[in-house]
Design a binder for these strands. Structure first.
Lengths: 262, 262
DNA sequence: CGCCTTCTTGAGGGTTCTCAAAGTGGGTGG
DNA sequence: CCACCCACTTTGAGAACCCTCAAGAAGGCG
């Protein structure tokens, strides 16, 4: 139960400095993410970079946040990959969001601290637990930051809305193509790859939980995209052979990612 | 183009007073909605009730907000029913949210004024266009209101996430049952009916666009719920015969509507 | 009465699911 | 270094769910 919550196991000597470096790097990533959509002043940036937090390492396949948990911190992804999910009565799960380094995976817990969701580490994942008190204080003192955080929540909601139209109206192969397009842009914006060549460390079962299909059908959809000459995979690395064609199949328009600062 | 945007056509004499009454009533509904999830002070309440706005009537089946429109106001539903939707390349549509009186249908446009969505009037619908400037000023001056608005956006996102798991993991009949459960609670909370007896003025085609199925299949799913003795319909009025059984079919848990103030 | 939208029914086909089993590759212990 | 194990990927076959196309009822409105 608790052994997933130990701090930074594994690294021998430079635990403390490494911790600081990782925290800073994560806050810089988060700031960069906010910068993509909001115009922040220098003092706002300094305030964000000065946010406190506790660095925690989570093993793959373990819950970072359990469904129903009452939170007093928000979870900033430092490294790795995390999935927000909803659990159904029959035990099946549906992923509702994927979070990459620099994402505040449950920023929405700041105004709503009772989790209705869970967050799982898809691979080994380090997170920074940023206290709600610090984030709330920042938002109260600095309207610019309050708007930036609100806007970041809207980005999250915009992606949710797009996934709804994908699930409602597109075939499994189209949804997969759309998801690859989205993750390509997001990884590229975060400095973690190129939109046509990036590492997406998810199993096919995890992808299936995102796309609302079984792992068997996901596998067939994936083969369909490969057979059409749209993508190539090498282990967990994804190469998009023809970005334009993949986008056409997916009906992908990146505007919903809200990458133009207002 | 513009003829859907005329103010309050139809009513003969008491246009101005009616306009004021309707505006006040709508702001009171909105305040009530915020009250369900946030603790506001008296001065905050007065500030919300003093919000300015332009009252506009929209005919059924017309766009209240066109996809891609640049907005300088948010749309408060005064009466009627509205759907937020996403349009796909092939012309099909997917509804991503349903808004009832008292909902600020595009509150998210305050931090993100460029619409990636559209909003359609499902029946004749009056809205109050509340200027972004007024909402932003309120949020900047009053952190309590800023949090209440942010929290309201999170309620919207929580519903989006739940719809994703419904679309991904549930059958059409289960999704329909879930949608009926949700709308029952929302109408009841808004003082517009009881959870087991309310008027949902949507055509089956409109319901199908919500649930991501065709109108034909929606009709069959509806008949299935009727045949199971779960619901009864009389025109647009819906009566839930067995709330517990309907919830069991839908795997419905109302906590995602976030009705406990933090 | 006639027109229109909405609701309902039927039949055939495509997508996706379930169940089952075989192939692949990385890690671990002998 | 090899054998084994485990997680993951791939394949197959039949069934369930949902779609498409089409046409017939039912209800509101001029």
């Amino acid at each position: 139960m608790a052994d997933g919550m130990v701090e930074q196991t594994g690294q021998p000597a430079p635990a403390v400095t490494a911790r600081c470096d990782k925290s800073s790097a994560a806050l810089e990533r988060f700031l960069h993410r906010l910068d993509l959509r909001s115009r922040l002043g220098d003092s706002d940036r300094q305030a964000i970079l000065a946010l406190p937090g506790r660095l925690v390492a989570h093993d793959a396949h373990r819950d970072i946040v359990r469904p129903g948990q009452l939170l007093d911190y928000a979870t900033l992804i430092v490294s790795g990959l995390a999935a927000r999910f909803d659990r159904l009565a029959d035990g099946s799960r549906q992923t509702t969001a994927i979070h990459i380094p620099g994402d505040m995976a449950d920023l929405h817990s700041v105004p709503v601290p009772q989790a209705g969701w869970g967050i799982e580490a898809l691979i080994d994942t380090d997170v920074l637990e940023v206290p709600h008190t610090a984030l709330r204080a920042l938002a109260e003192e600095r309207p610019t930051i309050a708007f930036a955080l609100w806007r970041d929540s809207i980005v999250d909601a915009s992606i949710l809305a797009k996934w709804i139209s994908a699930l409602g109206r597109r075939s499994a192969a189209q949804r997969l193509a759309h998801f690859y397009c989205e993750m390509g842009i997001r990884f590229e914006q975060a400095g973690l790859g190129a939109r046509d060549d990036f590492v997406l460390p998810m199993t096919q079962m995890q992808l299936a939980e995102v796309l609302g299909v079984t792992a068997v059908h996901l596998n067939r959809s994936l083969q369909s995209l490969r057979a059409q000459g749209l993508i190539r995979t090498e282990g967990r690395r994804l190469q998009v052979i023809d970005v334009t064609a993949l986008r056409a199949v997916a009906d992908f328009d990146p505007r919903y990612l809200l990458l133009d600062p207002a």
